[in-house]
Simulated assay, not measured.
Amino acid sequence: MHALNLQPKTLSLAERLADLAVDALIDEADLSPKPALVDRRGNGAHTDLHLGLMHASALALWPAFKEMAEVAIELGEIGLPLREAVGRIGRDGEQAMLATTHGVNTHRGAIWALGLLVAAAALEPDSSAASAIAVRAARLALLDDRYAPRPLSHGAQVAQRYGARGAREEAQLAFPAVTQRALPQLKRSRTDGHGEQNARLDALLAIMTNLADTCVLYRAGEEGLRTMQLGAQAVLDAGGSASLAGRRRLHELDQQLIALNASPGGAADLLAACLFIDRVESGESLIQGAF
């Protein structure tokens, strides 16, 4: 083959957005040390998950994210046809995920959050401010998908029991945990010179300080939720993950949550959403031929 034929092809907008969604999931999985979550150190509070499985699951979702972006570009407006198409593609993506993981739920919540955000970003690529993307995603989430299955997920059941805000409501409110907590903390930590990995850990902790994480509530009840929220705030108050005192508090939180079998999976999904929006907002995903 001639060398000129080996030039990387120019990717479409849908392909680039799918790349960023998968990158966000892999970066979230790799980030270490996360309290009680799968990372490079181990399985956290999980017995059925490991890092390789998280990577495989993320990669299996690439076609779904690409299709969601494509249908948003094709339809060109927020409405019931787009909402129902995104829902159908998301359910197909979930089946692809489960086939890859042999039935283990690795990224169901992330499919919901990132699927909406991918579609929102594809609708108006020239309007890439975090708040604008989140509002478009919220408008989409507020529409009722007539074809969505009605049985309540574990998260929805827990949200009803404790009066907590679940993943659906978080999206319908334009992802306040991301736009009001995670992204501002991510940028502050970067500005303070804490390094990218510590900035991302601090962003995760900022989400955990306030989120009524239904994954934690399902696994450990209100005690687990209080432990997560207060422990995350203690890490940030001690100087964040870049400080020695903060690292000590982070280690303590990790041990406490593992002992309670409390894994903040909802916070992890929202961190992936934060990383995706951060890259789209920076323009990284929309630069032609960047990947």
Results as ranks from 00 to 15, higher is better:
Ala64His: 04
Ile133Thr: 06
Leu53Thr: 09
Glu84Lys: 11
Glu84Ile: 00
Ala120Gln: 08
Leu140Phe: 03
Ala137Gln: 09
Gly76Gln: 12
Thr101Tyr: 13
Val38Tyr: 05
Asp48Met: 05
Gly163Val: 07
Arg165Leu: 02
Glu84Asp: 01
Gly163Met: 07
Val71His: 02
Ala113Asn: 13
Ala121Val: 00
His102Glu: 15
Ser127Thr: 04
Ala45Ile: 02
Ala156Met: 09
Asp39Gly: 09
Val38Lys: 03
Gly103Lys: 08
Ala141Phe: 03
Asp48Ser: 06
Val158Glu: 15
Tyr162Gln: 10
Leu59Asp: 13
Thr101Asp: 06
Ala85Phe: 05
His55Trp: 14
Ala138Met: 06
Val118Met: 02
Thr101Pro: 11
Arg161Trp: 00
Ala85Cys: 10
Gly87Ala: 07
Thr100Cys: 13
Ala137Phe: 05
Val38Asp: 01
Gln157Glu: 10
Val135His: 12
Leu82Pro: 05
Pro81Phe: 05
Thr106Ala: 15
Ala60Gln: 01
Gly155Ile: 00
Arg150Glu: 07
Ala122Cys: 12
Leu117Asp: 05
Leu114Asp: 07
Pro63Trp: 04
Ala96Leu: 14
Val71Arg: 12
Ser153Glu: 06
Ala99Arg: 15
Asp48Arg: 13
Gly163Asn: 08
Gln95His: 11
Asp144Ala: 12
Thr47Tyr: 01
His46Lys: 14
Trp62Cys: 00
Pro151Ser: 06
Arg146Leu: 07
Ser128Arg: 15
His154Asn: 11
Ala113Cys: 14
Ser153Pro: 01
Val158Ala: 15
Val135Cys: 00
Pro151Tyr: 08
His102Ala: 14
Leu116Tyr: 12
Asp126Glu: 09
Gln160Arg: 14
Ile73Pro: 00
Leu75Gln: 15
Ala156His: 12
Leu53Glu: 02
Gly109Leu: 01
Trp112Lys: 02
Leu143Asp: 11
Ala72Phe: 08
Ile78Ala: 09
Ala64Trp: 09
Leu80Gln: 13
Ala148Ile: 04
Ala96Asn: 13
Gly52Ile: 07
Ile78Thr: 12
Val158Lys: 14
Met97His: 06
Ile89Tyr: 08
His107Gly: 04
Gly93Cys: 04
Ala120Arg: 01
Ala69Ile: 08
Ala64Cys: 12
Ala69Asn: 08
Ile133Val: 13
Gln95Leu: 15
Lys34Pro: 03
Arg150Phe: 00
Tyr162Phe: 15
Arg165Cys: 00
Glu84Tyr: 06
Leu98Asp: 03
Thr106Met: 12
Gly103Tyr: 11
Leu49Val: 03
Leu53Cys: 01
Ala141Arg: 07
Ala60Met: 02
Pro63Ser: 03
Ala138Ser: 11
